[in-house]
Amino acid sequence: MSRTRRPAVASLFYPGDASSLRGMVTDLLAAAEPGDAPASTETTPTGQPKALIAPHAGYAYSGAVAASAYAQLRQPETIRRVLLLGPAHRLPFRGLAVPEAAALATPLGSVPVDRAALASAADLPQVHELDMAFDGEHCLEVQLPFLQARLSDFGIVPLLVGDASAEEVAEVLERLWGGPETLIVISSDLSHYLDYDSARAIDARTSEAICALRPDAISTRQACGRHPVAGLLTAARHHHLHARALDLRNSGDTAGPRDRVVGYGAYAFN
């Protein structure tokens, strides 16, 4: 297999020119203060996060929030594999979809797909090869430039999550959990198209549920990536991880009007 899946949202969600994209991501990461969490959270622990949640809107809207998650990778040289999960926006299906491609590309280059890891989860009934689910999909792609900027030699395990229970997603994560060489990234925005004050209220409740590792307290109305988030929270409870909020804003705070906003949160799990 040699096919590389080309980027679908370059020049739309982020710059299509490699130099401009590299400069933007570098600036976003430099502006993100590692360990700079909201005042309501506990003292930031040291060490490498096992998992991150980062938003997936256009960089003008959510790039700074996403950067606050990736800035937490203090030993990026240890990471060789990234489990990258996000919600399918364009095609409804049951379970989790994997692509046919051998690599996923951005203007910064191609990232190899860890086909061996995918093969090790292929016997799970909820995992299916469904390449068309990735056509035009943005939620995983927008995470790649941040990973390319922070990591050096790594592969990805891309999984789009359709209609799947928290337990089904957690089972896949458990199968591929690995050790310090494996990072989990969940791509999800929070509330959609509420007014500014309503969004702040519902996103605050969602953030509390994430930090309390309570998948039952999060609905699809609260997070478009509710299913992969719920799977991570379930697995995090099993592994006794602790979640912390890094940033919580919405498009009304960044680059949009305040009558219809989208919420963005960044979280680390140690």
Rank of each mutant, 00 (worst) to 15 (best):
V157R: 02
L190Y: 09
H138K: 00
E208H: 08
L173P: 01
D195Q: 04
L124W: 06
R150Q: 13
V142A: 04
Q143K: 15
Q126D: 05
F134N: 06
A164T: 09
V113S: 11
Q126H: 04
S152A: 13
L159C: 11
Q148S: 14
V169L: 06
A170C: 12
A209Q: 04
E181L: 07
D197G: 06
P158E: 04
F154V: 00
S207I: 01
Y193K: 03
R205F: 12
L213N: 02
S110V: 10
L108E: 04
L147F: 15
V157M: 09
H192R: 03
E181I: 06
A166L: 10
D163N: 14
L194W: 07
E171N: 12
G162A: 09
G136T: 01
A199H: 05
A209N: 01
Q148K: 12
V142L: 07
S152W: 02
G136H: 05
I156L: 08
L147W: 15
L151W: 11
L173F: 08
A209S: 09
D114Y: 09
S152T: 13
A201G: 00
L183V: 13
D135I: 14
D131Y: 13
A121L: 12
I186G: 10
S207K: 03
L140E: 07
D123Y: 08
C211Y: 01
Y196L: 08
H192E: 00
D203L: 10
S152N: 11
L124T: 01
L130N: 00
V157Y: 02
G179W: 05
I156E: 02
S165W: 12
P158L: 08
V169F: 06
P145Q: 14
V142S: 05
C139N: 10
L183T: 05
L160M: 04
P112V: 14
L144G: 15
G162L: 09
E174R: 11
S188R: 06
E129K: 10
E141T: 08
C211V: 15
D195Y: 09
L147P: 02
G155M: 12
D153E: 14
Q143E: 15
D189Q: 07
A149W: 11
W177R: 03
D163E: 15
I156A: 05
V169W: 06
D153M: 05
A149H: 12
E141H: 12
E129L: 08
L118W: 03
A212T: 03
E167I: 11
V142D: 05
Q126P: 01
D131M: 07
Q148C: 08
S120C: 07
D153V: 04
D131I: 15
E208R: 13
A170Y: 07
A204L: 10
T106V: 10
A209K: 08
L176W: 03
F154W: 06
V169P: 02
E171Y: 07
R150F: 14
D197V: 14
L190V: 07
L130V: 04
A199L: 09
P107S: 12
E137R: 04
S187Q: 11
L159M: 14
L173T: 02
G136R: 03
A105S: 14
S191D: 01
I186S: 13
E208P: 00
L213Y: 03
L173R: 06
A201Q: 06
A117Q: 00
V161D: 04
E181P: 03
E137D: 03
L190M: 12
R205E: 15
P125L: 04
E171C: 05
L130H: 11
A199Q: 03
